[in-house]
């Protein structure tokens, strides 16, 4: 179970208002994406949910309980891979679960294999490419046991092909385990392909400018990307984003 709800969240850094009146929900087992211009405050929203700092106004609830300023209630993948240079890939991937105190070596090894990193279990981060590091950080968040996963641009460093593979993998995992996902991206297509709902943020101070409910049937596969309907949706969201900047 993971029901996230943000109500009237506002946050300023020094004198600049970054977020204002952000309200949205992520329902149990739902996949929600956040789209917004660079610097609009997407990562800041994640930091607030993760409890890194308190919101100036508003409240954040997970399953009815306030988690504002409370750490450790989400599985998290930061925008930069943030792997620990002295840990091997396997130890890095297990870190999230290690902190909570529930490691599963077998499951970790399987995940590494599935992410196409098999054979690199004992490699150190400096021996991995940018895309491989990103995949490792992605698995680390999947292996953390919290029911809400927050992914901050998880696939931005991957080539088109690997990215599609990882997206499909994420979808299959998600439909299998039914965790709630909050997903930040710059890529409209990615948001459309993955999400139940897409939220578009306005420029500073960020508000939820518009919310799109994506009606595509699940399970989805890549043939969806080329349909007329998909392109229509893409256009609609593109226009929404263009009006911001």
């Amino acid at each position: 179970m993971a029901e996230l709800s943000l109500t009237g969240i506002a946050k300023s850094f020094e004198d600049t208002r970054v977020l204002e009146g952000i309200s949205f929900d992520v329902h149990d087992a739902e996949f929600v994406s956040i789209l917004g211009p660079s610097g609009s405050g997407k990562s800041t929203i994640f930091n607030l949910i993760g409890g890194l700092y308190q919101p100036d106004e508003g409240d954040i609830k997970l399953d009815g309980e306030s988690i504002a300023g409370k750490r450790g209630s989400i599985s998290y993948m930061p925008q930069s891979p943030s792997l620990f240079p002295w840990r091997t890939l396997l130890d890095n991937v297990m870190l999230g679960s290690e902190i909570v105190g529930q490691q599963d070596r077998e499951a970790s090894l399987q995940m590494i294999e599935k992410a196409g990193l098999g054979g690199y279990e004992n490699a150190y981060p400096h021996q991995l490419s940018g895309g491989m590091k990103q995949r490792a950080a992605f698995i680390r968040s999947l292996l953390s046991p919290q029911p809400l996963i927050c992914l901050d641009e998880p696939f931005s460093a991957l080539d088109e092909f690997t990215r599609l593979e990882m997206q499909k993998w994420l979808l299959s995992l998600w439909s299998e385990y039914k965790r709630s996902v909050l997903f930040v991206t710059h890529n409209i297509e990615e948001a459309l392909f993955l999400s139940d709902r897409v939220m578009v943020l306005s420029d500073r101070p960020a508000r939820v400018k518009k919310e799109f409910k994506i009606p595509f049937e699940r399970p989805r596969d890549e043939s969806l990307l080329l349909t007329e309907e998909f392109l229509e949706w893409k256009k609609a969201i593109y226009n929404e984003l263009r009006m911001i900047t």
């Binding site: 994640f46 930091n47 993760g50 409890g51 890194l52 750490r71 450790g72 209630s73 989400i74 998290y76 930061p78 930069s80 943030s82 620990f84 002295w86 870190l95 999230g96 290690e98 902190i99 909570v100 953390s144």
Partner: peptide, 25 residues
């Protein structure tokens, strides 16, 4: 590294975990 510290905090690491898993190594 501030990035790694950020991750540890977001993951809910205790002060002891932050010290032994991040700062000490």
């Amino acid at each position: 590294s501030t990035e790694l510290m950020h991750y540890m905090k977001m993951a809910g690491a205790s002060n002891g975990q932050i010290f032994w898993k991040l700062e000490w190594p």
